[in-house]
Amino acid sequence: MSMMKIEVIDRRTFLIGAGASAATLAALSNLAHATPDQAAAFLAKLTGGAQPAEGKVKLVMPEIAENGATVPTEVSADSPMTEKDYCKSISIISTKNPKPHICTFHFTPRSGKAVAKIRVRMAETQEVWAVAQMSDGKWYIGKTTVKVTIGGCGG
């Protein structure tokens, strides 16, 4: 029966309906979740307004995360890690979680490599950023997208 009902809705009506519910959904998710704008605002605060350059920092996450509650994540930066030239920190920033800032790792030349692994929560399918600061004060950014099957931030 329900199948038949769908068939009689013409394309225009369907699109209007779908558009409206998408708008409602977007409004609802704005209440609970950060937006890319909030992530950009956090990034600007972190870097003091400096625009990070693409490259040097890598963010590795699974393409598809079946369980958003625990998504294995690896960050690394291309740096010699010497007293004169090392990566000071890498932050992981979410564009769709309730809060943009997930975590920040701080490194020293003693670290040997600027690399860290952690497991993070992903509320929904989204773009994630890794932002690194080098000892010369320069900022770099790397991005990836994760498809989330079941969100991991509770409801």
Binding site: K99, F105, T108, G112, A116
Partner: peptide, 27 residues
């Protein structure tokens, strides 16, 4: 810390999973 020297540290928010796992390196 390695022999008293703080060589790696992290700030975590609510976006870090339960039972946090963290791996890193030291020279």
């Amino acid at each position: 810390k390695y022999n008293g020297e703080k060589f790696f540290w992290a700030d975590w928010e609510g976006g870090v999973s339960a039972n946090p796992y963290c791996s890193f390196t030291c020279k």
